[in-house]
Design a protein around this nucleic acid. Structure first.
Lengths: 199, 199
DNA sequence: GTCTATAGGCCGATAGAC
DNA sequence: GTCTATCGGCCTATAGAC
């Protein structure tokens, strides 16, 4: 995984771009910073990706796959129960987000700023229409919009990561305490969600 | 409330800045846009606020007060029970966020980008140390970190607003449907939170 | 207080040598 | 493919007239 040896220049740029875009957002990022981080020249960045905009799109594509790729097989599985899906999705999301803590905030805020470009990358059909999850929720709780439960699940897993900078900066938690906090939620959130769904 | 009549120039700039910073973030905002939105000249903006940075700080101060001002008296009230606090805070937050739907995403993502400037504005002591809420949660659920419940509450109320641009852009919900969705949550979230706290 | 005009710096992108 | 050097435009901030 050493950036300087076996990784192609194109990939080095992509990795650095991913890091800096995620930290500073599209408009807060300067292509010069990406080039410096990648250890290459600014001209080379445009040689490979033509423009800042196109580089950003490439990065965002990877992020969307990271955010939904592993979840789709879970929510579209015909053979697992609703409760099993909750357990599996929770475990998977905490795993993804622990490795990419500011992924959610990045994606959400960039979508808010220029919705059209990004939302087209999201596989709505698989997540909602084809999703077995939606059907299973509706069977269990026919009276309420299934989104309430999906939003509850997503919020309880994702929100702590979005709020991490506050917790850290107000000296409420350090990295270690946060990690333990998240570890606790990994088992707690599925319990709470099931409680809500079964109520 | 007509911007062009009884409102001072300084306030007109502040209102416009608030709008555009919230939509585009600090680095995505151009002072020219703020001036145009306010119907004044660019030079006047610097005359009143000295710099883009200082104007941003002013805006952020207002946002932090908006986000915490009404909540502090609720969570520090010695006379209300935990369940009453949940009801009151929920109602207040849904009211604030309905009027300012992209307030949370704005504040969270700007904090992530330059933490130190903003977090100093947040009244931690009142929200946590002095807070009667924290004590009441601890009495009810001594085994778990009280933050779990605070995060659960905040996430379930705040997250739908952060996700609104996705829902809207994927044509999952229009404005009207979203408003109804949120209206439902206003009564549902307190029920779920109490369920979790009493479990 | 409010304007026009412009300075001055930054940033994305490209030309051109190697 | 990779570099240095630079263009051209944009954006914040200010000078100076009214």
């Amino acid at each position: 995984m050493d950036k300087d040896t076996d990784v192609s220049t194109e990939e080095k740029i992509l990795i650095s771009a991913s890091k800096i875009f995620t930290e500073k957002g599209f408009s807060g990022t300067r292509t010069r910073d990406i080039a410096e981080e990648a250890g290459i020249n600014l001209a080379l960045l445009n040689y490979y990706f033509r423009s800042k905009e196109k580089l950003f799109e490439q990065v965002m594509k990877v992020k969307i796959v990271l955010l939904f790729g592993k979840i789709i097989p879970i929510v579209t599985n015909e053979k697992t129960t609703l409760e099993e899906k909750i357990d599996l999705a929770s475990e998977k999301y905490f795993e993804i987000l622990s490795k990419n803590p500011n992924l959610p905030l990045f994606v959400l805020s960039e979508i808010q700023k220029k919705p059209s470009n990004i939302t087209s990358l999201i596989p709505v059909d698989k997540l909602l229409k084809t999703s077995v999850l939606m059907r299973q929720i509706q069977e269990k709780k026919p009276g309420l919009h299934p989104f309430h439960f999906i939003i509850n699940f997503l919020s309880m897993t994702v929100f702590p990561f979005a709020g991490k900078p506050i917790l850290k900066n107000l000296s409420i938690m350090n990295d270690e305490e946060f990690q333990q906090f998240v570890e606790e939620r990994k088992t707690l959130v599925p319990i709470w969600i099931k409680m809500i769904v079964n109520s």
